[in-house]
Write a protein that binds this DNA or RNA. Structure first.
Lengths: 340, 340
DNA sequence: CTGAAAGCGCTTACAG
DNA sequence: CTGAAAGCGCTTACAG
């Protein structure tokens, strides 16, 4: 049988209460007592039962990470692995654990609240991206602390961590315009996902700022996959763009394939810019210019924000928006190189 | 405050014990009582506190999934996302939850047992692959049920689920030989990972069966990444292979890049076969012949095996080895096409 | 600074 | 078939 506080107390000649205080770092314990208990604790490698602790203390130091599976990119894009890694390592650092929920789309509210209100979680991080996710709605009605990865337009009073999609997309497109490109197309993400919406908006803002029209034939919707990018690019080809801003690297890679197949050279004939800076982006031919998204950092910040909400009695609603950096590689060309 | 059994009991005119019995499906409850309680339960959407249940019952219905982060492929290869998905959805189906541990390599045994013996987990699935993982050793000394994804040569008395790496690799190489290829090279995985070892062994077996020598200059070690495959292929080029078996699709994609850069055509000059059948494999130019690994199925089987060990008093040590299927696409050529 | 005691919300023999 | 009671292993006022 595993040891209990009572065993440790007996072995160190003190009481269960004192052992508990030592374990929890209570300063109101005499130093000599503390040391005596510590010795026993360590020599037996004692692990307190977290279920019991949770029941008595009213919290578990366990966070939920919810990732809706409705998204086709979950296996093909390193975004989610990186996010999971960021969340996991921040939890480790804060001495929290993470329970993972890959939520199948057909989950209904009953299941959702069964999961969230069973007393095992102190809070939840939701990486939904979908603008109208029932999980977010269910959480919104409850009393469990939660923070979103990716803003949600319909609940601005909710905590979230996001990357500045609109601003960094705008910068990417401005970069293309600065290189002299005039027919800049875009392959958007799905328009029910916030990243898809905001990146398109950044594209539009950039064109408008430079007094250029937004032409429907230069805008095609993708689904964040390589195949989606390929298909969208073939459609865009008819409008003869001289540059393409793809809302994800996977789509940019698909677009590159379509361009190459069509006999067009990147960047000489068409400049190409992606979004994410996945590892593969540096190894395409030519290497892909892209917006580097601080994915792991977002995960870590979500954890820190959530823990603050959990441990802090009256925290502010907070919106953290991280900047993203344009990684200029060869696929966009240079203003020098372009016209030679 | 959340509801408790006592609340439900009061509302349905019965006792806490009976409510508990109804929730846990005890048949020794009169049907009319059961219905009365059920009505209250459902109308209030009652969720029992799992920490309390865990403490009282001695189990939590939570499984741990441990993935060591020492592996460079965790972000670039869909293997881990797929595995996680398989584990997660099998857990959902069995009404278990999963706690995720992305174990940083420097974790020492004290931390490991702190994690595993805190009473929150009924069992653990370890997707280690590393032949000498301290996590597996720590688990081996303890009393927590666990199963491995990927066999571990140093502990054959442990439960595991694996794909038949050796057999399916052998088949892939035999296929190349059948096409008339005679200088078949291989890009292996790391030789401290079981998949790397077993796939190399399959390659060697196939050559030996056909009476062909195993030439050191036709064997190069990679690290399961695209870049590793690229580097290994450049090295192999000096030995002028007419076919390459890469121990992962990501490495095959890197090899393809190296071959293309060297002006060699696939499959006309060099046949190429990968392993995994990741989504991208169908979209390379030419599409990649590869061994399809049932990754999600492995995750699901690991869950089922583990739950059986947890719930079954004296389960057998079991080794599940799944077959993998060769997906023939264009990158290996055909015996007809090859010589024209 | 420390211990005895109550209590967290369940499960499960035990008695009836 | 059902309820009163003990107990799971902790935390935390409370009293001293």
């Amino acid at each position: 049988m595993p040891l209990t506080l009572e065993d440790i107390a007996a072995l160190s000649g003190t009481s269960r209460s004192t052992v508990s205080r030592v374990i929890n770092g209570d300063h109101a314990v005499r130093e000599t007592t503390r040391e005596r208990v510590m010795t026993v604790l360590q020599s037996l490698n004692f692990q307190p039962n977290l279920a019991a602790r949770g029941l008595a203390a009213g919290h578990t130091r366990v966070l939920g990470l919810v990732i809706p599976m409705g998204v086709s990119t979950i296996f093909t894009d390193p975004f989610f692995p990186m996010l999971i890694q960021g969340v996991s390592s921040a939890c480790n650092a804060c001495d929290y654990s993470v329970m993972l929920w890959l939520a199948e789309p057909e989950f209904e509210r009953r299941t959702i609240s069964k999961i969230f209100y069973n007393g095992l979680l102190d809070g939840v991080i939701v990486a939904s991206m979908l603008t109208d996710d029932p999980i977010i709605e269910a959480l919104g009605e409850g009393r469990l602390p939660f923070v979103l990865i990716g803003r949600n337009p319909s609940r601005e009073q909710t905590c979230y961590v996001d990357v500045d999609n609109a601003q960094s997309s705008r910068q990417a497109v401005l970069h293309l315009l600065r290189l002299g490109r005039r027919r800049v197309a875009t392959i958007t993400g799905p328009q029910n996902m916030i990243g898809g919406i905001d990146r398109l908006q950044g594209y539009q803002t950039a064109l408008r700022e430079r007094g250029l029209p937004i032409l429907p034939e230069l805008v095609a919707e993708g689904d964040f996959t390589e195949m989606g990018g390929y298909i969208a690019m073939r459609q865009l080809l008819r409008a003869r763009p001289d540059a393409v801003f793809a809302a994800s690297d996977m789509m940019a890679i698909g677009a590159l394939r379509a361009l190459t197949e069509a006999g067009l050279r990147v960047p000489q004939d068409v400049s190409l810019v992606g979004f994410d800076d996945i590892p593969a982006a540096a190894h395409t031919a030519p290497p892909l210019t892209t917006v580097r998204q601080p994915t792991q950092r977002m995960g870590a910040l979500a954890v820190e924000t959530l823990i603050d909400r959990i441990e802090n009695p009256t925290p502010e609603v907070c919106h953290l928006v991280l900047p993203a950096e344009l990684m200029v590689r060869e696929s966009c060309g240079t203003s020098l190189g372009l016209f030679h």
